[in-house]
Design a protein around this nucleic acid. Sequence first.
DNA 1: CGGGTGGTTGATACTTATCAATGGCTGTGG
DNA 2: CCACAGCCATTGATAAGTATCAACCACCCG
Lengths: 296, 296
Amino acid sequence: MKSSTTTTIGTNPDRDEPDIKRFDSLLEATVGETPGLEQPQPVDAVALRPNIHDDLTSDIAPCAACPAHELNLCTAVVKKALSEADLRPGASQLTSTTHTVPARRTICHPKEWSEFVPIVCSGWAASSIAFPDGRRQILSFLLSGDLVSATSLLVPMSGCTVESITEVTYRKFKRSDLKPFVFKHPDILDTFSNIWIEKQKQSDQLAFDLGRRTSHERIAGLILNLAERLIKRKMMNGKTMEFPLRQRHIADATGLTPVHAGKVLSEIQRAGLINISDRSLTIIDETELRRMVGWP
Amino acid sequence: MKSSTTTTIGTNPDRDEPDIKRFDSLLEATVGETPGLEQPQPVDAVALRPNIHDDLTSDIAPCAACPAHELNLCTAVVKKALSEADLRPGASQLTSTTHTVPARRTICHPKEWSEFVPIVCSGWAASSIAFPDGRRQILSFLLSGDLVSATSLLVPMSGCTVESITEVTYRKFKRSDLKPFVFKHPDILDTFSNIWIEKQKQSDQLAFDLGRRTSHERIAGLILNLAERLIKRKMMNGKTMEFPLRQRHIADATGLTPVHAGKVLSEIQRAGLINISDRSLTIIDETELRRMVGWP
DNA sequence: CGGGTGGTTGATACTTATCAATGGCTGTGG
DNA sequence: CCACAGCCATTGATAAGTATCAACCACCCG
């Protein structure tokens, strides 16, 4: 169900893998359906960045290959920890573990107290609020490099449900390690501040979208938004992106019904603005798509 | 149009009032319509808290009388600054100015760079996102003690429009003073962290409400929400609260049309759950109102 | 083959928006 | 003092947008 490895920076890293279990029978279609995508290749990664400290990199090598590498979060933390360990061995101990979960799993419960700060390494996940009667609002889709919860560094309970959409691997830092570490380093603190600010801006924009935009605008906006984020992560293949979202996800993200979301989606498709097939989406007429949303 | 006073803690406070202007001809109905409300009484306030440093309190006395006094923000900052000035006079200089604006004024532009961190002292304001075509989503109503923008301590541009609903007075700290001050004092930093966390939670809840709730739920929720916040500020008179919102505000906060918001509102009123008259709202059947929203 | 999931489509119902007309209130200016 | 304009709330008729329901098909995986 869940595999994991542990990495410790600053002291002897334990390289045991205490919790490896096999994926159970619930296999995920998406994994099988996107075999051609370039996944991070740890070996290449190490080759590409030989400047990183050798004896410590092996476990964080995937970070260097992470498509969100330039987005600064995981990398910034790990690099800083490495350089610090370099100067004063054992000074600042940062333990993190990597976990992999199959699609459609709950990664994080809304009421669950957690001592960890998780960051997505690869795969797609959704952060949402659920109501007892089944209504659900997706607040954001999480891609590689995203903090699972923007406030998780500060507080142990996110209040949101996080579910994997594809297979997801994520890195968990211990909050009791990471929090003092972040507050000790102004540049890292700055990185986190920017994440909070950005998250707040996104939330405000989401409220506007849900409160004041038509279904067409919302869906066009969602697509453009995802495309922009994937470009930053070098996960766009020209105008084409991996698109593992079910209509249920799109509906829950836009405040619509799956049926209606599907209708709008195929309308946009029939109009020749996009093309969806085989779990991947191609933007055909970006100009018109942007015009729909009122973006420049 | 705008009156202001300056207060400096930690050095010689200048007590000049450099920028007093009279309210211009655009008078606000609300001010005239709520003459009976108990406004903060600086004189009483000083009498009630004789333990505060004498020669510095005069300008921050209104803070002591602020209904949000126990909410810790302004008070916490000011108290801390006072005690610090006490120990090492001149050590940490915190300058703030107080401003008063009439109803229906823009306090803060979305694209405007500001070097100040404003906190509402009294009155109602609305923080919103506006679109060129006129669509507008109110993100939150600001009451006494609220930071005008949760991120304003960190970054000079909020991205939101803030408009006064009633007459509003607010206190502006210089960011360049306040930011290092906050980060120097762990307990104050904690207060600010909690504000960020709380704001993020509210934003997420707003997204859920706008995306997944009916108009009745949204409006009932809005009323209960306001009531709870006013109770904390001791601004509820039994089950009755001041209610300066126009239907346009309610509509923009709930993602509805003014006309529809009005219809829902009068439906709830006809059902005997609330009563609105003369710019004040009374909750008659709280149990049923809560049941509508699905709250315990 | 059978079951589960997910996408598509059409008919219909419900919710909300839009439009228009009315009346109350308030401040304005004669 | 009075008419007047502007803003706001209310109401009803109608239109548009979205949800609900149901049936069907396609697919994948056992």
